[in-house]
Design a protein around this nucleic acid. Structure first.
Lengths: 211, 211
DNA sequence: TTTCAATTGTGATCTTCATCACCGTCCAGG
DNA sequence: CCTGGACGGTGATGAAGATCACAATTGAAA
C-alpha cells in the first residue's frame, strides 16, 4: 500500500530499515467521517499510525460530558493505542474521525520485534508519547489558568490550522470546551468585534494568520 | 548500592537480567526536602528511578502560578526524565522533593542498550508513561468537571495516603489547586463539619479511610 | 515576657460563567 | 410555499469562586 519512501516522508523518525519493515506488514484501514475509532474502556489488538485525515481525541466525563483534548493528523500515531497494544490494557479516551481517516494497523504481535530490532521505532514511540504528553500539559494550562475567552481563541486557532472555514456550530464548540452555547455565542461576538473572525450560520471564518 | 533482589522488589516489572544490569551501573543521588529536582526548560543527562521519598510534580503557569499534578514515590520513575534523557529534549514540568528522596540515576548513554537488550526495560518505560498519562487525565477530569470542594477532597485524600497528618497551610493548598486561601479555608471548615478532617494550625488531620 | 510575623476566620463585593426564558432567522422536506 | 426544527442572539438571574478588608490566634524569636 505504501512504499518505504512514502512512509519515511510521512514519519520523519523512521529510518529505511524500519520503513521497509512497516511497509511489508502494513495493513490499512479507513474510517469514515464521524466514526468512533476508540471508546473508553476498549482494548487494542493493534497500534495505529495515521496516514490520512484527522482524528479528534476526547476525554469523557462520568456524566456523559465530553472534553476536547487534541487532534491527531497524518504523520502522528495514537500514543494510547501503541501502549495499550503493547501492554494489553484499556484506554480512557474517546477518538472520533472528523474527516475520512486512513490508518496503518500494526498488529500487537509485531510490537516486540519492532521495539527490539528497530531503533527508529522506539524513538518514534517515545517522541509520540512525549508530544502527546506536552499537549495534555497545554490543555491543563488552559483550563487551570485561562479564562473562557482565551481558551476559545486557542481552540479556534487549533481548528483553523488546516481550514480557515471552521464548520462547527456554537453548540458543538461549547461541548468541546465544556461550556454552554450562550457563553460561546457571546464570546464569539466579541471576537468578531475584534475582527478576528466572521460569523456565519453553521461555520466561522478565521481571519488571523494560522501560526 | 542496591542488590538485584531489592530492585526487583521495588520495581516489579524488572526481570532478573535487567535488575542485575541496573544494579551494576546504578549511581544513587539524594535530594533533601524542598530541593528542586527538575525545572521547566531543563535538559537531562540521566533517567531517574525513585527508591526512597516522595516527589511533587507541578505545572508552572506563565505568571508564576503553580499547579499540582501528581506525586512520584518509591518504585516509580520520572517519565519525563526518561524520555527527555533518551531524546535529549527539555521538560515543561517542575519537580520538588517533599521529603528526603533518593534516586537511581541512569546516565543517558545506557538508554540505547537498555531499550534494545532488555525487554523488561521497555515494558517499564511504557508502563511508567501510561500511568503518568492516566494521572494527567484524572487531573483534567478534576479541573474540567469538578467543583473546588470535590477537588479539595481528592487532593487531601492524595496527600493523606502516606500520612494522615497533612502538614500544609491553607495557603499552600490553595496554591496547589490554583485557588485562593479564603476559599480553601471555608471548604476545609465544611469538611470539618462533615467530620472528615480535624483542622489544626499548620496541619490537617485526615479522618477518612485511606483507600 | 513581649512582640511580630505567619496563620486562620469571616463578611462584603465583584467577576465569570451556567442556566433559564424567549425570540428571530434560516432552510429542508412536505 | 409553508412550516417545524436547528441555529443563533440577548436579557435576567444565580452560583462558584476571586478578591479585598480586617480581626483573631498562635508561636517563635528577641
Amino acid at each position: 500500500m505504501y512504499s518505504p519512501e512514502q512512509l519515511m516522508q510521512m514519519f520523519p523518525l523512521f529510518d529505511r530499515k524500519l520503513a521497509e519493515f512497516i511497509a511489508s506488514i502494513a495493513e490499512t484501514k479507513t474510517f469514515s467521517e464521524g466514526h468512533i475509532m476508540m471508546k473508553t474502556g476498549q482494548y487494542f489488538k493493534a497500534s495505529m499510525l495515521i496516514t490520512k485525515g484527522k482524528v479528534k481525541l476526547y476525554r469523557e466525563g462520568e456524566d456523559g460530558n465530553e472534553f476536547f483534548m487534541y487532534f491527531l493528523e497524518a504523520g502522528s500515531a495514537c500514543a494510547l493505542s501503541m501502549i495499550c497494544a503493547t501492554r494489553n490494557q484499556s484506554s480512557q479516551i474517546m477518538a472520533i474521525a472528523v474527516e475520512e481517516t486512513e490508518v496503518i494497523m500494526i498488529p500487537i504481535q509485531y510490537m516486540d520485534v519492532l521495539m527490539t530490532e528497530y531503533k527508529g521505532w522506539y524513538y518514534f514511540v517515545l517522541e509520540t508519547y512525549r508530544s502527546r504528553f506536552e499537549e495534555l500539559l497545554i490543555v491543563i494550562d488552559n483550563i487551570a489558568f485561562k479564562n473562557m475567552d482565551e481558551r476559545l481563541e486557542w481552540y479556534l486557532r487549533n481548528q483553523a490550522k488546516h481550514n480557515k472555514q471552521i464548520t462547527l456550530t456554537h453548540q458543538q464548540i461549547a461541548n468541546d470546551l465544556s461550556s454552554s452555547r450562550e457563553v460561546i455565542s457571546r464570546l464569539l461576538k466579541k471576537l468578531e468585534n475584534r475582527q478576528m473572525v466572521v460569523l456565519h450560520r453553521n461555520f466561522i471564518e478565521w481571519l488571523e494568520p494560522l501560526h
